[in-house]
Amino acid sequence: MTHFKKNINKCNNAFKDVQKVAQETIAKKQQELMAPIQTKMMNAINSVAKEKGLAYVLDLGAGAVIYHAGGEDISAASKS
């Protein structure tokens, strides 16, 4: 391998390392900034659900239950 190619590979590897660290730093900061917003949102959802007497609140976009007030899980019984 020529000296030029070795230098290119070395620079490419250094770039990839810097890019990886930058992506990790951005992800960490994003989580840090989003955590209080998510907490506030979940508290608001819980409060409204309790106020309205709801048993479940679904997030249709994620296909998940984001609030449930307890109760009996009939999943197993409904599968038979």
Score class of each variant (00 low, 15 high):
K5C: 06
L60K: 11
Q30L: 13
I37Y: 01
Y67C: 02
V65M: 02
A22D: 09
A55R: 07
Y67L: 07
G70I: 09
T25M: 10
I8C: 01
H68R: 08
A76S: 15
I26M: 11
T25V: 08
M42R: 14
I45V: 15
Q38P: 06
A69L: 02
M41R: 11
A64P: 05
K16C: 11
E24F: 09
G53I: 08
P36F: 05
K28P: 03
A76R: 11
K20W: 06
A69P: 03
K10S: 03
L54M: 15
K20M: 02
D17H: 13
Q19W: 05
A14Y: 00
Q19P: 02
N43R: 04
G53L: 06
A22G: 04
Q38I: 00
Y67I: 09
E72I: 15
A35F: 02
L33V: 15
K10I: 07
I45A: 10
A22L: 15
Q30H: 14
K16G: 00
K6Q: 15
I66S: 00
Q19E: 13
G63T: 03
I8R: 09
T25K: 12
K5L: 14
Q23H: 06
M41H: 08
Y56G: 00
A49W: 01
G70H: 08
E32H: 12
D59C: 00
K40N: 03
Y56Q: 01
V57M: 12
Y67P: 08
E32F: 04
C11L: 14
F15Q: 02
E72D: 11
A44F: 09
K20F: 01
I45Q: 14
Y56C: 01
M34K: 07
N9G: 04
N12C: 08
D73R: 10
Q19G: 07
K52T: 10
T25D: 08
S75T: 15
T25Q: 13
V48C: 00
N7T: 01
F4C: 07
E24N: 08
M34I: 10
Q30N: 13
F4V: 15
Q19L: 05
F15Y: 12
Q23R: 12
A76T: 12
I26R: 14
I74K: 11
L58V: 15
